[in-house]
Design a protein around this nucleic acid. Structure first.
Lengths: 228, 228
DNA sequence: TGATTATTCAAGCAAACTATTGAATAATTG
DNA sequence: CAATTATTCAATAGTTTGCTTGAATAATCA
């Protein structure tokens, strides 16, 4: 059994491949990936947001980093983890898609979180086109750290916190004259839904998008390419 | 802690998502998926081709089927497993791509199996266009069962076995007048490389493709769409 | 019906994974 | 330098996997 035998080489290949898949095969790690897809974080921040212990998150991060799914850089006492490779985000989206197709229960669970009646009916590409043409307004309701780290082209960064603090629309630089769309982290995030509810109390014509910032940018660049 | 609490719902979602990822997180299961991507098989055939025991393969298949990645149908005493959902194949390809980007060692291992000097230099889309225009010939060198189950548009099904049995080119309906390209299961398969070597002994101008049948069909349909 | 074939089931064991705990490390601050 | 902060490390317990073995099942055929 030499290492140069085809069967042996193939064994090694399939082991490497499954090692990468393994990085995605834990709820805790997926939560971490989803958060890092928005903006880099320290271990402690990730622990807080995922609800896992610091040591546990640290261990998962080491697994992710070993698979090169995340990278890490020092910043004083802290270590900032991030997802560098866009293909990782792509796979993460693909996975969500596939999972929803394979397991119908996921759609129901998603519905419980985000209130589908608030979803925009037009396809995201159409909305991005309208936004680009100035016929609609797109709001990024994530916290500033995230909207700054992974901005969506054409979106105004107005966090849910800001929306709730504001006394009126004018204060936020918004008007009732155009339809408004709101984005957040993606399909399992309820920030945009809450933002829609907040804006509707002011009589806005407003809906949420389910697409993630990553997806929206891809869609937007497609729109741009087609238009140019 | 009610099930209706957002945190609880989210927990359930991430568990379902990781369960799907888990289906891909084992070398044995990936081998099975790769084979089923070519054509349906019985448990015994899969065991033989993967080099795993029948009971072991059966157990992996049950895991895959539980995740709805594979489906199963009776045929006499046998049970025929298959991959029905094209998204599964898409993810499998994406995974290979990502893994190669994350782990450079994979490229080297792939090279050991397939002899990169035999690879076609033009992009597959260009080759598919030439084939479609009748300026080049594309051969599917997989065994008949596979080329019949997942045919590649425009490809002639001439298995490596047939190629090796033949006494001359004419017998196979081939000529030296056009460049020849050979496809097989994909990047970790050496059938096409062996076919290239066989055809070169007859003086053919022949190269292999690394893309899988699934990828090639996607590329071909893109080519067709653009041309029409 | 009984024998054959293909597959699953059930039990068992070693290895790997997850999350916990408390100690160790390493950069920063007073 | 000592204290603080952020993270990792090491040891551990409880689960879950992966694979093996041998028996059980279920469809087919003589």
């Amino acid at each position: 059994m030499k290492t140069t035998e085809p069967a042996m080489i193939r064994r090694g290949i399939y082991e490497s491949l499954s090692a990468v898949a393994n990085a995605f095969a834990s709820p805790a790690r997926l939560k971490v990936i989803q958060i890092l897809a928005q903006s880099p974080r320290s271990v402690e921040e990730l622990a807080q947001e995922t609800g896992e212990s610091v040591a546990n998150v640290s261990q998962h991060l080491q697994k992710l980093s070993k698979a090169r799914v995340t990278s890490c850089e020092r910043s004083g006492v802290k270590r900032i983890y991030r997802v560098i490779n866009p293909k990782v985000l792509q796979i993460w989206e693909n996975f969500q898609d596939l999972s929803h197709e394979l397991d119908p229960a996921l759609d129901l669970q998603e519905g419980l979180l985000t209130n589908p009646s608030l979803h925009a009916l037009e396809p995201a590409a159409e909305i991005m086109r309208e936004v680009r043409a100035g016929k609609a307004v797109l709001i990024d309701a994530r916290e500033e750290k995230e909207s700054a780290a992974t901005p969506v082209s054409g979106a105004l960064p107005i966090s849910l916190t800001q929306l709730r603090k504001a006394k009126n629309l004018k204060e936020l630089g918004l008007t009732r004259s155009k339809p408004i769309f709101v984005l957040c982290r993606g399909r399992y995030c309820s920030i945009a839904s809450n933002a829609v509810l907040a804006l509707r109390t002011w009589g806005c014509d407003v809906y949420r998008l389910r697409e993630s910032p990553f997806q929206l940018n891809r869609i937007a660049s497609g729109v741009r390419a087609r238009t140019s």
